[in-house]
Every structure is written in C-alpha cells, then in structure tokens.
C-alpha cells in the first residue's frame, strides 16, 4: 500500500474553513446575540438598531459589504468543511457527491450573498 503522491486540493477548503472558524470564534456568539436575541427581544440595543434605513446604509457602504460577505460566506465555508468531514466520520463516503453537496451549497450561498450585496446598491 504505497502512498499516492497525488496532490490534495484540500488547502483551498481548509483555508476557508480556518478563516471562517477564526471569524466565528471571535465574533460569532456576539453576532448571534445581537441579530438573533438583542434586537428581536429589544434588549440592550436601541429599538431601531436593525431598521431598514440603518441596515441599508451599512450594506451600501464598502466596509459594510465586505463585513457582511465575510461573515456569511466564511461561516458557510467553515460549516461546509466541518460537515463534509463529519459526514465522513459517521460513515458517508467523503467522495465527489458529498463534496459537491457541502462545498456546492457554500458556493451557492456565497454567490447569492454577493449578488444581494450588489443589488442593494451603493
């Protein structure tokens, strides 16, 4: 059983996994708290924190666009990579099919996010 020397293309997915893992480890819990709990339940932050005007202005700003894209895309790629490996862990063969589903969904999510960020205007 001599090892094959075919180069793995995993670094692409691993790098995205690592970037998303780091970003979500640093600010993930706070983001969930802000968008999922504080704003809907009216805790801590002003009631109009996520009003249409506020969020639209943020999404039209270049830095805002970059932040939104980084969060959505990197979170998706991080999760896709972990789920891909977890499927392998529970016995789903880590072949082309699993790869297409996991990474394919992350790619689709990234494209939709990029499209929406263009569609909201500048």
């Amino acid at each position: 059983m001599k090892p094959t020397l075919k180069r793995s293309n995993a670094p692409i997915f691993w790098a995205l996994f690592g970037a998303g893992g780091m970003l979500s480890a640093l600010i993930g819990p706070m983001l969930v708290f802000i968008t999922g709990l504080a704003v809907p339940l009216g805790l801590l932050l002003p009631a109009d924190t996520m009003s249409y005007a506020h969020v639209l202005a943020f999404a039209r700003n270049w830095a805002g666009k970059a932040f939104i894209l980084a969060v959505i895309a990197l979170f998706l790629w991080h999760a896709a990579h972990r789920i891909f490996h977890s499927l392998h862990d529970v016995g789903v063969h880590a072949g082309t099919g699993a790869k297409l589903v996991c990474y394919g969904l992350a790619l689709v999510g990234t494209v939709i996010a990029a499209w929406a960020l263009l569609a909201v205007g500048f």
Binding site: P3, T4, L5, R7, S8, A10, W14, H85, D89
Partner: peptide, 14 residues
C-alpha cells in the same frame, strides 16, 4: 513535502 501535500497526507487530519 510531496507526501505531506498528497491525498494521503496531512489534510486527512481533522
């Protein structure tokens, strides 16, 4: 490094 980079290499590790 050819072995490290290969499909049998480090990226099997989770």
């Amino acid at each position: 490094m050819e072995l490290v980079n290969s499909e049998d290499g480090v990226f099997n590790c989770t």
